[in-house]
Design a binder for these strands. Structure first.
Lengths: 246, 246
DNA sequence: TTAACCATTATCAGTATATCATAATTCAAA
DNA sequence: TTTGAATTATGATATACTGATAATGGTTAA
């Protein structure tokens, strides 16, 4: 492993499954000698991306919090989009989570959320949690807004394992329909019992393909509420897109 | 520049002052040839730490949000401390911000905050914002809890410019007094018109030197409120310390 | 105190890799 | 198209990374 990757490979070991690693553990997992990992871990520690934990373990360091702030302050989607979340959520007639998400590698990731004070459910749409590309309104409206070329590259990766491309064609039809409507509603595709409503946020100029979505309890946010919410959701997403454009 | 630093130097260019950089701008600032910066920026982009912006500029990428989440999920202080913030803030008789902060290089940085719904003031204690080491209750209780050796190293760096070490001695006396009391209250040291109350969170075993603090409007959180708040603040910080220890 | 043990750092020759000037390519706009 | 700028590729050189091993440091138990 070489270049930046030898550092990325190390920090990507740390997640909720295993938040602490010894040097020999990392070395074994990465198939590298301990002396090399010691050296690289030391560099990461010096920069605050790792730090020493008890029992000669290491954990992630607070530098990520600093750079997360820098991202929030400099990213155009964060700067223009975040201020719309509070008012949007106040207009939803059920306790909900509002999320701004975006394409991130081969996944979709939420970069900021806002929630009603009295949330009873828990959703996997959390800030910084990569989510599946093909499931859920949040992801689908993003895919639907991509240029054909980029979309095909992504879908070919996702569908590479299935022999027939019937499912892919089916999926493309669904995306076309989403594009026509300008929004997408899904139920239980990602989290059981939850409903997702999403509208696309696009700025080709800024290379931003994102979505604004509302996640709620499917028993509390009813089908009859949708005519009230969807226009607001779509127009808010449009406003954010327009603000990005200038 | 070499190793991890050649990447760090690049991403550290991006902040609220200038959130977008072209390759030639980075190259000039860092005193490196453009071809090298192109290569490094490409590696950073591939990993999601940078991404392309309009007019052949670059901006920070969303990978930092993902790693910020990993940090929140794995860091012991976050895992044990964050759940105490909401109840603490509900007991403060004025709109306030509650913050968990920790030593970070030669600074102090807040890693999570919680605030009352009706905040009127704005504070520089924000998640991920490095703050001065010598000013404010949040920082001082951390310094006061350090071992003499570490404290001296830090202070010698901070006071290196002044010829006499009278100020340093004065400062050490102040810290000793803070240690005795177990808390610290400062007014307007960091943000004008604001008051800070802080108690230390220490786990030598975990190598964690942190603080729990309340930031509030100095005109709303009065001196006569302190006898009510401080015991709660100190005991909450102690509970977090103890939970860390096990 | 010493000894033993583990974690971490230092050493150093060998080698792979980053560098950087330049050339080639891509891309967008005119 | 053509032009110009941005980005990528090239290739010789210098250098920084590697990895086996040795040295150091810190902790615990005898």
């Amino acid at each position: 492993m070489t270049g930046l990757n030898r550092f990325i490979d190390i920090i990507r070991l740390f997640d909720e499954t295993q938040g602490q690693w010894t040097i020999p553990e990392m070395a074994e997992r990465l198939g590298a000698p301990t002396s090399t990992i010691y050296r690289n871990a030391r560099e990461l520690s010096k920069a605050g991306f790792l730090e020493s934990a008890p029992s000669s373990r290491y954990r992630l360091g607070p530098a990520f919090v600093e750079f997360n702030r820098r991202f929030q302050l400099t990213d155009p989607l964060m700067r223009t989009g975040s201020k719309f979340l509070t008012s949007l959520i106040s207009h939803v007639p059920a306790p909900s989570v509002v999320a701004l998400s975006r394409l991130y590698d081969n996944q979709v990731m939420c970069t900021i959320t806002q929630q009603s004070p009295n949330i009873k459910f828990s959703t996997s749409y959390q800030k910084g949690h990569p989510m599946p590309l093909l499931k859920g309104a949040t992801s689908k409206v993003i895919l639907a807004s991509l240029k054909p070329k980029r979309l095909n590259e992504l879908l070919d990766q996702q569908f590479e394992d299935c022999k027939t491309d019937a499912t892919k064609k089916q999926f493309l039809i669904e995306l076309k329909e989403i594009n026509r409507r300008g929004y997408c509603v899904t139920r239980g595709e990602v989290d059981q019992g939850l409903i997702g409503l999403a509208a696309p946020i696009v700025s080709e100029k800024h290379n931003i393909f994102a979505s604004l979505s509302i996640i709620s309890d499917a028993n509390l946010l009813l089908h009859e509420d949708e005519p009230q919410i969807l226009p607001l959701l779509v127009s808010t997403a449009k406003i954010i897109s327009n603000n990005l454009a200038e």
